[in-house]
Nucleic acid binder design. Structure first.
Lengths: 336, 336
DNA sequence: CTGAAAGCGCTTACAG
DNA sequence: CTGAAAGCGCTTACAG
């Protein structure tokens, strides 16, 4: 069943004017006599006319759409950023569409092409593969890269201060009295991962503490295995810097099986600050990335770009914060 | 910085043929001499030409895009369905774009219009408000409605058997020896919620058990308050049918505070079967909705619709399953 | 097999 | 202020 929609010509006929006049009324792009405008408005209502955006953007080169490409639609952190992008976009009359690349370079390329082809006004992407360079280079749209090593052409990079995040978490665990904090080291192919590692290493060095870490993916599919390995390799661990908040669910499971109490035996600091962290039991102490700001800023950069405002700079490093909850215990003297 | 893209006319010029011929090569829509085809292919490569989908779909009326509109981008269950939609779509050369309506009717309407305007081939929606009727009626696209009471016009409704789900969960709790199973009753404005409630009520009646329930939202923002209220009103509760899996995180928190053990003191059955349930500690016994199938079927219905195949029927009720994990304990005699 | 032409549904110079 | 015309970048009858 296909409902045929009214077209601008139908409206024009009904109102007794030309399509051009109808267009001008809709867009407010030129003066139209009050009387004709009124007739047009009535005709629009009567016909239920909605301008065809395809035709419109074929001419206008802008569809007021921002594309957000993520490697996984199941990544809560990225979805929380998406929500912020969406809000900012909508406030400015833009729409956000989310595309799931499923960590598949072919899909990623396909969505970049689709967004280009549909005259989107920009792309926000957490690209995580290098093969993408060519697609991005061939894409004429403004591109904001999130959170990852930016390679090749882009309009701006928006990420949080991962070095500071790594430091902050480590320093806090030491302050809480941990002697053997172990880092679940994020993938080192990402600059974010390298920065966090660096932050951890530097703090260890400054405190004369031996750095301990195991490599961990962001994805929690392997979380159980990874958590188990951590405890096997470092049975004396008394503090853990989780690769991200989600991973802590697996950590809890393994710790409980081994009857290690949190925070009594082992303290934990997560990373990201997704809402889920507050729902866990015990509630998760974590590094808060400025999720809302990352999303809004990224959207804003693209919207400004449309108005030919180039961003102040190409790299935005947003500050992180420590959120203390229940998986850490501050030292007793801090009460004084 | 705007990169100007090659157009079909550039390719034609370079290959020494007409744009029509280039189009025919790209689309395989008519025979082209081998020699010219070869020249065209070379010219395409040389220019890096990508057909403008906007222009293309203005004529073709199909953009090979399926829109998936959800009330919240943070709903894991809906995102898992989205992943399945995406996979099915991609296999057939379609793309899925996810639109977040944020439970805002205006956004919902805006996205429906956008998808219509961009000649999407169909919409999959978990509409949850009644005001939407008009938008949907005015939308000429195939629409598949998920999981909710379908109102007005639509191509098909795909949902799982909520009545059976309600029954299954209740029966299992009784089988495990619960005397006072309490239902976190899902919002009754949804047919899915009403069906589950009915399933629960019927089983209670059949077993001569007093039905106990409190109203609960799907959203876990209010989870803590809701869980607390449940325990206050029914302190003797020994089994809980959670409104969904996510809500169980809040439940755990409250139960732990009150020193009630799971499953020793209180057993829990979740609802949905999201992956997160398996990461919880204890791992969650739950009703598995056929997430993968819901997504794939919905996508398939739309894709078939494009080829003018009307679906076999308008209502698909998919079967649910019980997944036993650690929040329930089967009766001892079941070993024999 | 192939090109010139018309058309998809809008928008905007161009004249008046 | 307003309409006829051209154009956005493709695709597909229509002739040949």
């Amino acid at each position: 069943m296909v409902i045929s929609l009214a077209q601008i010509s139908d409206v024009a006929k009904l109102a007794g004017v030309s399509p051009a006049t109808v267009s001008r009324v809709i867009n407010g792009s030129a003066k139209v006599s009050e009387e004709k405008a009124k007739r047009v408005l009535e005709a629009i209502k009567a016909t239920g006319f909605k301008p065809n955006e395809i035709a419109r953007s074929l001419y206008k080169k802008s569809s007021r759409i921002i594309g957000y490409i993520v490697p996984s639609i199941l990544n809560i952190f990225l979805n929380e950023i998406g929500r912020a992008i969406e809000e900012e976009a909508f406030q400015h009359g833009y729409k956000m569409i989310l595309c799931n690349s499923d960590e598949n370079p072919k899909k990623e390329a396909a969505y970049i092409q689709m967004l280009t082809a549909m005259n989107a006004d920009g792309i926000i992407i957490t690209a995580n593969n290098e093969n993408l360079d060519e697609e991005i280079r061939n894409c004429p749209l403004p591109i904001v890269v999130l959170d990852k090593e930016a390679s090749g052409r882009y309009t701006a990079v928006v990420q949080s201060d991962n070095y500071a995040g790594g430091r902050l978490a480590t320093e806090y665990l030491l302050k809480c009295g941990c002697k053997h904090p172990v880092l679940m080291r994020p993938p080192q192919k990402y600059s974010s991962g390298r920065q966090r590692f660096l932050g951890y290493m530097d703090v260890c060095k400054e405190h004369g503490i031996e750095p301990l870490f195991i490599d961990s993916p962001f994805n929690s599919n392997d979380g159980l295995r990874c958590s188990q390995e951590l405890l096997e390799r470092f049975p004396y661990v008394d503090g853990i810097l989780a690769v991200n908040d989600m991973m802590v669910l697996s950590l809890y499971k393994v710790l409980l099986m081994q009857r290690r109490r949190v925070p009594d035996d082992i303290m934990i600091v997560g990373y990201d600050g997704i809402e889920l962290g507050g729902l866990m039991t015990p509630e998760l102490t974590t590094i808060l990335q400025p999720i809302e700001e990352i999303g809004r800023l990224s959207a804003k950069i693209i919207i400004d770009q449309v108005a030919d405002k180039t961003p102040d700079r190409q790299e935005y490093i947003l500050p992180v914060k420590l959120k203390v909850r229940q998986t850490t215990r501050p030292p007793a003297e801090s009460n004084g």
